[in-house]
Write a protein that binds this DNA or RNA. Structure first.
Lengths: 253, 253
DNA sequence: GTGGCGCCTCACGTCGCGTGAGGGTCAAGC
DNA sequence: GCTTGACCCTCACGCGACGTGAGGCGCCAC
């Protein structure tokens, strides 16, 4: 009868020689014969058994359980059926795993920093690369800028949406106060200014009342800031600037 | 701030104390504090991290990758995608394994036990087998395959015995017709083909007459299928193929 | 003050092999 | 007949994620 050596069997079944040695050691698959020189010799029956082992192993069954199963004196068809059942349920598990990974991926992706496209979608044309570049040029070396950059780096789309919502709310408060005819030095406008300051301090960089004044002046001196306010409501830039100064005065006392 | 000891944390998360020790040792989860007596003290933040560890571990990621991932050094999405790919390929492998088991079962149940060499052929010898990729390509993602997998998953021994009996009966009918000298386009052969189709439709997956043609062609074009039939009766593969086409023609009218 | 439980730190065991080290065997070519 | 190189053998240690004691200290209740 034909026999095979470890190397041949290994190639045939896609396992390593070491694996065959191991199976021999633990008595899972002891070759039926040895050559004069001590070479392991595998027969047909050994190969059949190895085939079963390989299948069960792919199900991640512990080897000693595989041995018990194979030594249980069952017939081949029963093994095949049981293996099939086991593979199917393992397939279910793996599908579940993939689904879990997909969920994890989706969570991670939605936590990813927002892309430029998403930013534009949120903030419209005001968010332009040229402004970005210029602002970088002008403020890039300041601590406030660095701090802001550090913080916003990890902002997700959801974070930015929240920022925008907060901004909108503050602006709406300014506009409402202005339309009610209240002066920029009035309670409502000053409160809105304080919310504005806190918003920036929370979201971007530490901002005290003195620094807030500087920002406020920018709103009337830098035409781009001015424009974004004036587009919302004529005279709003100046109104916001005055409200911020009044608020800072109030807190200076 | 409230803290927890190893035992409490272990109970909370369903892990062992030893596991927490291990995570401490390898730096995956080092508790934020120690009591005067050296007890590990876990804070809220520690628990949050453990929660993440547990989740990632369920995805069978190696612990050092989990650590890298949580320490933010590397991209979580990248890790997850890699893991997903790995699991997917295991899924593919197992799908192919089911197909192989089915082929082996079919052989066994038509009373022609496969020899080791044939087994190896049936199971694709290793990983680079040309059939393997092709079979997966061809069937792995199809609805029919999924449906078949879903249905047969719960088949009992008795079910399989019934399947075998039905199969044998169909084959016997084909053989009888052929031996009587009837053409494959004859009534008896076509009837057998129809029974064959219904058998598969009942037991495995929806199979209309058009799809049945495809299957029939496979019986002559795929040597594995061909061999099963040819072993029963020389020329049977072609005969069955022709009978199925004739039957489909008949039902197309 | 005395159980009993929980915590600590070693430190070795487990499973399914991988990966050498050190040495014998076999068929082929010179 | 002798070398070469592929193949085989037997140790024996390593890994990854813990399990499982051993020996000893800390804490709380009775």
């Amino acid at each position: 009868m034909a026999t095979w050596t470890v190397g041949q069997v290994a190639d045939l079944f896609g396992v390593t020689v070491r694996t065959l040695h191991h199976y021999d050691e633990i008595g899972l698959l002891v070759p039926s014969g040895r050559s004069a020189a001590g070479y392991r010799l595998y027969t047909d029956a050994d190969l059949t058994r190895l085939q079963q082992v390989v299948v069960y192993r792919r199900l991640e069954l512990p080897l000693d359980e595989i041995r018990e199963l194979l030594d249980g004196g069952e017939d081949a068809v029963e093994h095949l059926r049981r293996q099939r059942d086991a593979v199917m349920s393992r397939l279910d598990e793996l599908s579940e795993l993939v689904a879990a990974l997909d969920r994890a991926l989706e969570r991670e992706m939605s936590d990813q920093p927002a892309t430029p496209e998403e930013m534009k979608e949120l903030f419209g044309d005001g968010f332009k690369d040229e402004y970005q570049a210029e602002a970088q040029e002008r403020w890039g070396e300041t601590d406030a800028w660095k701090q802001s950059a550090e913080r916003t780096k990890r902002y997700t789309k959801a974070d930015w949406a929240a920022v925008k919502a907060e901004m909108d709310a503050v602006n709406a408060a300014f506009i409402a106060a202005k339309r009610r005819g209240e002066p920029a030095t009035g309670e409502a406008a000053m409160d809105a200014a304080e919310v504005h300051r806190r918003h920036i301090a929370d979201r971007f960089y530490d901002l005290d009342h003195e620094f807030h004044r500087g920002l406020a002046d920018l709103y009337v001196s830098d035409p781009r800031f001015t424009k974004s306010y004036e587009d919302l409501e004529p005279g709003l830039a100046q109104y916001v600037r005055d409200a911020i100064h009044a608020n800072s005065d109030r807190h200076a006392e």
